[in-house]
Amino acid sequence: MTDKTDLVLDTVPTAPPIEEKPARERIYIDGDEAHFERVDLTNVDLMMFDGRRFPHLEPRRLFPRTGLERYITLLDDDGEEVAVIRNLANLPKAEREIIDDCLNEYYHVPHITKITGRLEKFGVIKFFVETDRGDCTIELRNIVHQIKLTYGMRVMFLDNDDNRYEIPDIRKLDRKSMSYLNDYL
């Protein structure tokens, strides 16, 4: 004799399964299955240990603000993604250094070490700063949109010409610098 409950369960319509096949095959690099060779400032050749080779790829961060080491995409000359490195920390040291160098070159943003002055005139705010690449002046017109604080300590500036600057950790700034900055955070 069949249990009534079973009958009900048997007749419940189920949704058709979603096709498993992904839209496009993505190569994930998790550890030591690939070797990189740097070909210029921001590009590498990728040799997979299964024999596949991909020339002239540019490593880019998929999360440039929130995940500096996670999910590094490798783009070919047409801007098409070829592979993704899940986590830089899992790569062998030599491979990691190659990718790091390319990323550092591409994502080079001056790191502000000190704010030496501030001037507000004609609706433009000028920050006079010392960076790890020399002294410069940052000009902003909209403090609300051009200064962003993330994680309570990292500050990104986007100046009137779309140049980026960064303070990796505002806790390391001196008091005077902080006093110039604090008004806008």
């Binding site: 440039p64 994502y107 080079h108 140049n163």
Partner: peptide, 9 residues
């Protein structure tokens, strides 16, 4: 002109 994140070449 190659546009990088922070400057261009």
């Amino acid at each position: 002109v190659k546009r990088n994140y922070g400057n261009a070449l």
